[in-house]
């Protein structure tokens, strides 16, 4: 009788032990996994932490392009401003920014293009007829698509 209950007790305790050990292992694994995820998150944070600033800078860069395009005479002053633009581009490149451009005649691809306008043209339907604004990617993530006009 007593031995029976003893056995029962042992088996119950064994089961409990297994359960606790399992719980402990899980907790430890959870912790280690969380640490890894945290590291990953910190890495992502460092990479994309300045995304907001870069997004705003990209608008400034776009205004630069427009300004230089509107500047018709080739003066040393214009050349200087072109160099300032290049400087800004270089700086952004250092922080993981890649400029994306669309080729005329290229097929429209929403992965990187955004269509602003459909226009009648001789090119095949659904191809790009004009790049209106450049696109930008930060470490491969599109933060602003290339804005284009598409043939209808």
């Amino acid at each position: 009788m007593t031995e029976e209950t003893m056995e029962e007790k042992v088996s119950r305790l064994e089961k409990e032990k297994e359960e606790y050990l399992e719980g402990w292992k899980r907790a430890k694994a959870d912790f280690l996994n969380m640490k890894k995820e945290e590291e990953e998150r910190v890495r992502e944070f460092i990479k994309f932490g300045n995304e907001a600033i870069i997004r705003s800078m990209v608008s400034v860069l776009e205004s630069f392009y427009l300004g230089l395009m509107a500047w018709k005479e080739e003066t040393p002053e214009k050349k200087g401003m072109m160099l300032v633009r290049a400087q800004l581009e270089e700086t952004l490149k250092k922080y993981g920014v890649e400029i994306i451009q669309a080729k005329i005649g290229e097929e429209f691809n929403p992965e990187k293009h955004e269509c602003l306008l459909l226009e009648a043209s001789e090119s095949p339907t659904g191809t790009i007829t004009e790049e209106v604004e450049k696109g930008y990617a930060l470490y491969g993530k599109i933060i602003r698509p290339v804005r284009v006009k598409v043939s209808k």
């Binding site: 429209f108 929403p110 992965e111 293009h113 955004e114 269509c115 602003l116 306008l117 459909l118 339907t125 659904g126 698509p145 598409v150």
Partner: peptide, 18 residues
């Protein structure tokens, strides 16, 4: 899309005009 590809979310939004 014209190529019969299904787009959802941001990609669908970008091509809305086309």
């Amino acid at each position: 899309s014209k190529g019969n590809e299904r787009l959802v979310g941001l990609l669908a939004k970008r091509q809305a005009v086309v």
